[in-house]
Nucleic acid binder design. Structure first.
Lengths: 140, 140
DNA sequence: TCTTTCCTTGGAGTTTACTCCAATGTTTAT
DNA sequence: ATAAACATTGGAGTAAACTCCAAGGAAAGA
């Protein structure tokens, strides 16, 4: 499968796919005689996992760590090392989930109470002067 | 309370606090006779909420939308409009949570099965050539 | 064959969210 | 009174993660 098809498959751009390969988020993809990338099922599986982990908020850097780990550890236990990285990322993810659940509860509380500190804006202390660039509509 | 104390209270820098005010994430803070900011409890409550929502992954842009909404709607129902924005952010948050839960399940599955596409790295297809900048250790 | 559409690379540009700096003024400590 | 430690602003710089571009080669359709 060529790069365009692979990109479409995961709703990524070809640039992103090349970028991921360049920085080491996904392993080097095999090329045909003209140097064109030819994505295998294995490659597509990688991309699928990477896309999911990125969506979940994991950094490109930690995905690179996962992807390159095997090369830089002089260990017999590459598989175990890699599984450990996945476990680390799972732990990260679980922590993020816990934090987000906490914030959701806070938000629910704020909506229910709509308390004084939210009502501050009613006093007109907020104005367009205060807004640097977004919603550029000064005095219309 | 001065800006340094406020920053310390939430483990933010004074620059970040000024930045938030400048772009409209928090309302303008009252100044004393010399133009120094003096944070009220209301301001601190704002900062607390903002910090939490940022931690949960909401963008600065959407926080600005929340903060400035009241000014740009010629509505009597400012409170209702603001509550609606909070509800929208809650919805966003819930969607993110659902997605992250899904990814967590995927990760658990990958760890359990450690399947073929992860094992690809064992073949040595990954090398330092592939790693652009991180872990800069080309043949040491 | 020619035009369109793909592919390659290296490198430059963009966006988001800060983060730092210079120049300058104020408050606090010695 | 003078130094240290605060404060202010406008604007420049930075890191992460793309995103775009130029120059050129390859493949597929009319």
């Amino acid at each position: 499968m060529n790069i365009k098809q692979a990109a479409e498959m995961f709703d990524l751009t070809v640039d992103t796919l090349r970028y991921y390969e360049r920085v080491g988020v996904i392993p080097p993809v095999h090329r045909n005689e003209n140097g064109y990338r030819d994505y295998t099922t294995s490659d597509l599986n990688w991309i699928y996992l990477v896309k999911n982990l990125r969506n979940a908020g994991l950094s490109v850097e930690s995905l690179i760590e996962f992807a390159t780990l095997a090369q830089f550890r002089e260990t017999q236990n590459v598989e175990e090392a890699q599984k450990q990285v996945l476990r680390d990322q799972l732990k990260e993810l679980n922590e993020k989930l816990a934090e987000m659940n906490r914030v959701r509860d806070l938000l629910v509380y704020k909506i229910e109470t709509y308390d004084e500190h939210i009502a501050k804006f009613k006093t007109g202390e907020m104005n367009s002067e205060n807004v640097e660039k977004l919603w550029e509509r000064k005095s219309d």
